[in-house]
């Protein structure tokens, strides 16, 4: 009861109080160190990522320039390239100039085409992000209602049939990787039925198949989590109390249950987004989608190391940013989250 004895924290006026309260809450969290700890973790991870990306070039056995240009390339060319890349300088100064270059947006130039890697990234990143974000939105929009519906139907072991169908169908959907979905979808809808273009990015229709391929597994996974979470919430006392209050079903499920299941659902959704960005590499490859994924595969195959290095660095940074955002979002959404202790 100690809190009730505390002097009133200058009661915020009814209007204008909302923003103030939100700010206060955010500040409270800074004080509690949650945001700070997350920021520190992010910066450290980013540092590790930079060093790893730098090291990648140096860990390649032998001479990357020679490996890239092939044994037939004249020795002068190799030497010139090495000098241009600064590969003969002391390792530490190379690292420093690498990091400062990256922060200035200079990721080097392609061995093969001579294009600056920055331009490759700038032109292709939006295509990759667009695909991943749209797929996440589609997955969430389908999965949450689906999971809730399944939970309500199967509450307390009712409708065994629905439960078995739901778990096996989602289980199978999760188990099949996205590149198989894309191949299947291409074969049926693009090559067979000719409803959608089989490859490339040309207008809204060309998004349909890639998004579907990317979204199927996450949808199944989120729907499962959402069902389990909803089932758990349905067993809680506040639901019993809400039922004792005889609330209409829609109000019970959407106002009371849904907000409590969202935390876990969004956590998984966020984690999936990171996985989805990587999965998009395969889907881009199948659909020849002009994104980063297609380009990184080409660059690895062709030993175009600066491009591979730059793009993998960008992918890693995206994953870190996504994870950070998900964490922060959860911290705001769920004030009691256990997350904050880590």
């Amino acid at each position: 009861m100690a809190e009730s004895l505390r002097p009133s924290a200058a009661g915020p006026s009814a209007e204008g109080g909302r923003a103030g309260r939100a700010l206060g809450r955010a500040l409270g969290r800074v004080r509690s160190g949650f945001v700070l700890r997350r920021a520190v973790r992010f910066v450290v991870s980013l540092g590790v990522l930079l060093v790893a990306s730098f090291a990648m070039m140096h860990l390649i056995p032998g001479d990357p320039v020679r490996a890239s240009l092939g044994p037939a390339a004249p020795a002068e060319l190799v030497t010139a390239r090495r000098a241009a890349l600064g590969l003969d300088e002391p390792i530490l100064s190379q690292l420093l100039s690498y990091v400062s270059n990256v922060f200035r947006g200079d990721f080097g130039t392609s061995f093969l085409s001579g294009e600056p890697v920055r331009e490759i990234i700038a032109s292709r990143l939006p295509n990759t992000l667009g695909l991943a974000l749209l797929a996440t939105v589609v997955a969430l929009l389908v999965a949450v209602p689906l999971g809730m519906w399944a939970a309500i139907r199967t509450e307390n072991g009712r409708n065994r049939g629905t439960e078995v169908t739901f778990t096996s169908a989602t289980g199978a959907a999760i188990a099949v990787p996205e590149f198989l979905y894309s191949i299947a979808l291409v074969t049926v809808f693009a090559i067979g039925l000719r409803w959608f273009p089989p490859a490339g990015k040309a207008g809204p229709v060309s998004y349909v198949l890639p998004i579907l391929s990317l979204a199927i597994s996450p949808t199944a996974m989120i729907a499962r989590i959402c069902r389990v979470e909803t089932l758990r919430e349905l067993g809680m006392d506040y639901v019993r109390l809400a039922r004792a209050k005889r609330l209409p079903a829609a109000r019970l499920y959407f106002r009371h249950v849904l907000p409590n299941t969202l935390t876990a659902t969004l956590t998984v959704g966020g984690m999936l987004l990171a996985a989805l960005i990587a999965g998009s590499v395969l889907v881009e490859y199948v659909f020849a989608w002009p994104g980063l994924g297609l380009r990184v595969v080409e660059s690895i195959t062709q030993k175009d190391y600066p491009v591979a290095q730059g793009v993998i660095l960008v992918y890693g940074a995206i994953v870190l940013v996504v994870n950070l955002l998900v964490d922060l979002l959860l911290g705001v959404l769920d004030p009691t989250s256990k997350l904050k202790e880590t």
Partner: peptide, 24 residues
């Protein structure tokens, strides 16, 4: 801390990273 940071890292990215180093 390292483990926590790595858990969220997609496998395919790590695999591409090693593929660059170890060659195809």
């Amino acid at each position: 801390g390292t483990v926590n940071a790595l858990v969220a890292f997609p496998g395919l990215l790590l695999a591409m990273f090693t593929a660059v180093i170890a060659g195809l």
